[in-house]
Amino acid sequence: MFTGVIECTTKVHRLYRDKNNLCITLNNPFLYNEIKINQSISHNGICFTIININHNKKIYSVIASEETFYRTNLNVLKINDEVNLERGMKINERLNGHIVQGHIDTTAKIIEIENKNGSWIFSFLSKKSLYNVVVEKGSIAINGISLTIIKCAKFRFSTSVIPYTYEKTNFKYLKIGDIVNVEFDILGKYILSKKNEL
């Protein structure tokens, strides 16, 4: 479980396929005792379990199943790409973003970036319909970042990105046409699920 408040970014060190799985090795920005094997960390919003750590080379590895590969933007991930990281939330701390599971619902393409003289408006075209899943002023996670929706339609939505978020995440590297991971608010998904049962 995560909050959508990114701790730091890191670079992809190595990518290779193992049968239907994608193995990802990343540079380790954390101290020696801050991560461990079997720990879950959000990578661009995707919850991955650490399977290997090499403290001497300052790298660690995770693995993506075929299902994760096809549901997310991993098919466009490249060596040296910058990835957003967040370790699992602690129960005794404030929830500063919103509840993020690390389970990607769909991907979206950036269709517009507007510089608002101090912040940025990013507009996206979702691969999946947003009908009844998102609302204006509701929460959404983009590449693992907790953001507020300012406008939404059936497939299109936009969010505002403040300078701190822009500089501390991989938003500063994104451009029109890039594909991002999207996780809808779990509360909205539960409400929609119960509504469909009626």
Score class of each variant (00 low, 15 high):
K137P: 05
I37T: 11
C47W: 10
S193K: 08
E82H: 06
V180W: 09
E86W: 00
N132G: 08
I191W: 07
S129C: 13
I150Q: 15
N80K: 10
N56C: 10
I91G: 09
T25K: 14
E86L: 00
N170V: 06
N21P: 06
K137F: 04
S65M: 01
R156V: 15
V135W: 08
D18P: 10
F184H: 03
V134Q: 09
A141F: 05
K189A: 01
S126W: 03
I191Q: 03
E66G: 09
I53A: 00
I121T: 13
F2W: 02
K168S: 14
S193M: 05
R17V: 02
N96M: 10
I41W: 00
K109Q: 13
I121A: 14
I91Q: 09
L174I: 08
I140N: 03
F122L: 13
I121C: 14
G118F: 04
F48I: 11
I176V: 11
V12F: 02
R14W: 06
Y60I: 05
E67D: 07
N27T: 06
S129W: 13
S123I: 10
K127L: 12
S160H: 11
G102A: 04
V161R: 00
G97C: 05
V134F: 05
N28D: 06
S126I: 07
N56K: 14
N80D: 04
C23M: 13
T106D: 05
I63P: 13
C47A: 10
S123R: 12
K195N: 12
L130N: 07
V76C: 08
K90M: 00
V180D: 03
S119A: 11
E86Q: 01
G45M: 12
I99S: 05
A64E: 14
Y164H: 05
L147V: 08
K194A: 13
V161F: 01
N28K: 04
K128V: 08
V12T: 02
